[in-house]
Design a protein around this nucleic acid. Structure first.
Length: 875
RNA sequence: GGGGUCAUAGCUCAGCUGGUUAGAGCGCUACGUUGACAUCGUAGAGGUCGUAGGUUCAAGUCCUAUUGACCCCACCA
């Protein structure tokens, strides 16, 4: 045993300890068919990423579960990896190139990809190193990347399978176009923001009558190919089936009737721009309206816009409004606030437009995915997120998966220009299988979430039939924030079911966001983010982990504050010092003695320890990590440190060899056990301390998780000890109220309640040590004398002779106050017990407990009243 | 428009399927060098659990309504 420093210094031990863990392969998990593995796949962080508080919490939770199960069953696997993050990474690389004055078009696809891979090499390792600093016990030998060979193979395989089943198709559909990222986006990638704008009311005239339409985007009128009204709208009956003339353009466009139109809103007539509005597109499909695109991918008006060609959308709007005013077609302009879609990466307003893209047909995939959750094959914790999931899955639309980007999995579709044939294959066909012409590959890549969706099985070797895949799939739990249920969780579920035949995990553990101390979302733009690495430097990884876990409830957001981290750091120090104390008193390993030889205090702490073990285990099994951490904290600090260590001191420093040995053995046993219970949350501290303790071997990581042992469980004795502790507290309380300085010895006389005499007499050394008692006298009758202060507790009446220090009036006031409290409590209990409803219907043990409490309180009250009476007489 | 969360001590939050006199951390007050720990100890003050009903022997916990803060989804042009 090496000497322990006076305070815990995490900086001194974390790095070396982690290195040792990793090199010893303690993070690994072999295949052992006799054991059911507990498996988690990491939500792969982006290679562009820096570890932020969200990651820190997410990964701490995963690590807690993994470490818990590893200790418990010896078979736990946490698969790490990173995500290529197609769009996010590409944007960053383009930004970097812009600093050199380069664009990706200038350097070309191949050179661009070289840069991207170089980027990956440079930054991809960063976040993974940061995860190590947190203490994440991932099996790094299995680290994966969404674009590594195996994951890419999985992507191709899935694409081809879905294509062959008709679940992937290419078509001209309305998609969300980001004019800055210059790519299509899926619906999930659009975020809506409220914007104040205007509503332009424009009159479309025609031979059969006029109609006024309202729009938020007047420039899109150039692409109008119809007007829609509600079929039952009396105002427009005559116009349905006829045509009106599109102002500025002069095109004759039909008026159609469709239920979609809301008669109450605006004028009840809607201009139809099928190429630039998703609803219009759908109505156009129903009525056979032309789809006319007037804007190109960069948001510039194209040749279909006639004389407006070449203008940007904004310029075009101004121009169109100007001309409409001039021609008198503009009826009015009103203020209007509505939600506009923006790109989730760059927050540019997205342009809905018709484009030829690849889609996944969602209905057939969504159905079994809904059923899996509904039937309990996968369950969300907390359960309420199932509603979110169902709501999304049940209203899902086809998933646009092609992106006009270069960094990502290139779509394995090959087109023949000669005959128009499309070939979907893992490798490029040499020539068109139809006509023998030459083929070219689709230029686009897949949505980055397409590969993430396969993560739980692609990382285990799929599509190969590997031993890992057979053993570890389906995984156990997925841990993530509620913000990516749609992006990722839902897609993993349907992909797992479709490809593997069963959902990828049985539980989805959802956590909230980490907010700043004021409750605001941490963000780069606000600059209110707290860097977890700085916190680790200052307070240690364990303190950070604990502060992100303790007292947190699943699915709820939390506020991060350094005060919380400080409290956690203090806790780490407390444990450290408890161990230091133990180390100073131990003399090597001593096993628990025969239960019959144990002192009352030993029985008490062993029982409490078992209670804690049961409770913490249950909380971890139920994913209540916050409660588990809280419970270890309370047990360690309030029971073990505050009480047991103090209770053990008289024996540890005493002369009785046997008693000393017993106290040592119990101290060591409970301390070692509590370190194990704490290890999942505070891995560094617990392992460092563990190695200082006698009788331990290797790392605590691989130690066996504590299990309750009936031989050392003494609930009745624990209750006796609680009686003694109550009495000690009562004495301390008395002294504090009488302003007797701590440390100044005073005599104590106790008049035991029936059955307590021996216990109290035996506890004399404890009173001496913990309540600064000079001498304890056990009485057999109420003492006489006014210069006493008294208290009463379930075990005994307590008297302290304080001589002249006793202020009789004050003492009487104090007694009166205590009596008052007791009377209230007695009245409450009597009320309950006199209620036949309670005695008749409540569980018997509760009624019994209530009755016992009432009796005890009555006895105490009688004592106090007698005492008060005696004082009155004397006065 | 639909769905959800939160409201408990001065502050930040726990409180599982309803059952002791509702808890913790921080802060506050008083006292304190008992050789593990001042990153500490002892004692204390502080809450009619947002409001109004209801169910029940029993409600912070379940139901309904309501007020306030917030989030997600939908996207009526």
């Amino acid at each position: 045993m090496t000497e322990m420093e006076k305070t815990y210094a995490p900086q001194a031990i974390e790095e070396a300890l982690y290195k040792e863990w990793e090199e010893s392969e303690a993070f690994g998990c072999g295949i052992d068919m006799a054991k059911k593995p507990f498996t988690i796949v990491i939500p792969p962080p982006n290679i562009t990423g820096q570890l932020h508080m969200g990651h820190a919490m997410d990964n701490t939770m995963q690590d807690i579960l993994i470490r818990f199960h590893r200790m418990r069953s010896g078979a736990a696997l946490w698969v790490p990896g990173t995500d290529h993050a197609s769009i996010a990474t590409e944007v960053k690389i383009i930004e970097r190139m812009a600093e050199e004055g380069l664009t990706k078009e200038q350097i070309g696809r191949e050179a661009f990809l070289e840069r991207a891979w170089a980027w990956k090499e440079e930054y991809g390792g960063q976040i993974v190193r940061q995860l190590r600093r947190l203490g994440s016990s991932c099996d790094w030998s299995r680290e994966r990347f969404t674009m590594d060979e195996g994951c890419s193979e999985a992507v191709l395989e899935v694409f081809i399978r879905l294509y062959q089943k008709g679940l992937i198709y290419r078509g001209d559909r309305i998609i969300n176009w980001c004019p800055v990222c210059k790519t299509a986006l899926s619906d999930a990638e659009v975020e809506y923001e409220e914007q104040a704008t205007q509503l332009w009311h424009i009159r479309y005239s025609g031979p059969h009558g006029d109609v006024v339409v309202a729009t938020t985007r007047p420039e899109t009128m150039l692409g109008d190919t119809g007007v829609a009204v509600h079929p039952k709208d009396p105002r427009y009956q005559a116009l349905v089936g006829k045509t009106v003339i599109l102002p500025l353009v002069g095109r004759e466009i039909p008026v159609v009737a469709d239920d979609y139109v809301d008669m109450e809103f605006g004028t009840g007539a809607v201009k139809m721009t099928p190429a630039h509005d998703p609803n219009d597109f759908e109505i156009a499909q129903r009525h056979g309206l032309t789809v006319l695109r007037v804007m190109d991918d960069a948001g510039v008006m194209n040749n279909e816009a006639g004389r407006f060609e070449g203008l940007t959308g904004k310029e075009c709007r101004a121009q169109v409004v100007e001309e409409l005013k001039a021609t008198g077609a503009l009826e009015k302009i009103t203020d209007y606030t509505h939600n506009v879609g923006t790109c989730y990466r760059c927050h540019t307003t997205v342009e809905p437009l018709v484009s030829r893209q690849w889609f996944v047909k969602m209905k057939p995939l969504a159905e079994p995915a809904i059923a899996a959750v509904r039937e309990g094959g996968t369950r969300f914790v907390p359960e309420r997120f199932e509603k979110t999931y169902f709501n999304w899955m049940e209203n899902i639309r086809d998933w646009c998966i092609s992106r006009q980007l270069w960094w990502g999995h290139r779509i394995p579709a090959y087109y023949c220009d000669a005959c128009g044939e499309t070939t979907v294959a893992k490798t490029a066909p040499e020539k068109c299988p139809q006509c023998g012409g030459s083929v070219r590959q689709d230029e686009d890549v897949l949505d980055t979430w397409f590969s993430s969706a396969l993560w739980p099985f692609s990382t285990l070797g799929w599509p190969s039939d590997t031993a890992d895949l057979r053993y570890f799939y389906p995984t156990s739990v997925l841990v993530t924030g509620y913000d990516i249920i749609f992006f990722w969780v839902a897609r993993m579920i349907f992909s797992g079911i479709e490809q593997m035949g069963e959902p990828p995990f049985h539980t989805v553990l959802i956590h909230g966001l980490v907010r700043d101390a004021q409750g605001r979302k941490m963000s780069k733009s606000l600059g209110n983010g707290v860097d977890p690495l700085e916190i680790i430097d200052l307070y240690g990884a364990d303190a950070l982990r604990f502060s992100l876990t303790a007292g947190i409830s699943p699915g709820n957001d939390m506020r991060f504050s350094t005060e919380k981290v400080e409290a956690a750091r203090n806790f780490a120090n407390k444990i450290w010092n408890a161990a230091r104390f133990a180390q100073m008193n131990l003399e090597g390993f001593e096993p628990l003695p025969d239960p019959a030889d144990l002192a009352l205090a030993d029985r008490w702490i062993l029982t409490r320890y078992q209670d804690a073990t049961r409770e913490i285990t249950a909380h971890l099994e139920g994913y209540d990590l916050g409660l588990a951490a809280q419970k270890v904290y309370d047990f360690a600090w309030s029971e073990f440190c505050d009480w047991y260590i103090e209770l053990a001191k008289p024996r540890l420093s005493g002369e009785d060899k046997a008693a000393k040995g017993n106290a040592r053995a119990v101290l060591l046993h409970v301390l070692t056990g509590l370190l194990k219970l704490l290890h999942p949350v505070m891995p560094f501290l617990t392992d460092a301390v563990y190695r200082h303790l006698p009788g331990t071997e290797g790392t605590i990581m691989l130690a066996k998780w504590p299990e309750p042992d009936p031989v050392y469980d003494f609930p009745n004795h624990a209750a006796r000890m609680d009686g003694v502790l109550d009495a000690i507290r009562a004495v301390r309380n008395l002294r504090a109220e009488m302003k007797v300085p701590v440390g100044r010895r005073a005599q104590l006389m106790v008049l035991p309640q029936s059955g307590w005499a021996e216990t109290l007499a035996d506890a004399a050394p404890l009173f001496q040590r913990l309540a600064w008692v000079s001498e304890l006298t056990v009485l057999d009758a109420t003492p006489d004398g006014g210069q006493l202060v008294s208290a009463v507790c379930p075990a005994a009446e307590l008297y302290i002779p304080l001589g002249d220090l006793v202020d009789v009036e004050k003492e009487m006031a104090r007694l009166a106050k205590e009596c008052e409290g007791l009377r209230k409590e007695i009245a409450r209990a009597e009320g309950m017990l006199n209620n036949p409803g309670f005695t008749g219907k409540a569980p018997a043990h509760l009624v019994e407990a209530e009755r016992a409490k009432l009796d005890a309180n009555r006895t105490m009250l009688a004592t106090l009243e007698a005492r008060a009476g005696a004082l009155v007489e004397r006065a």
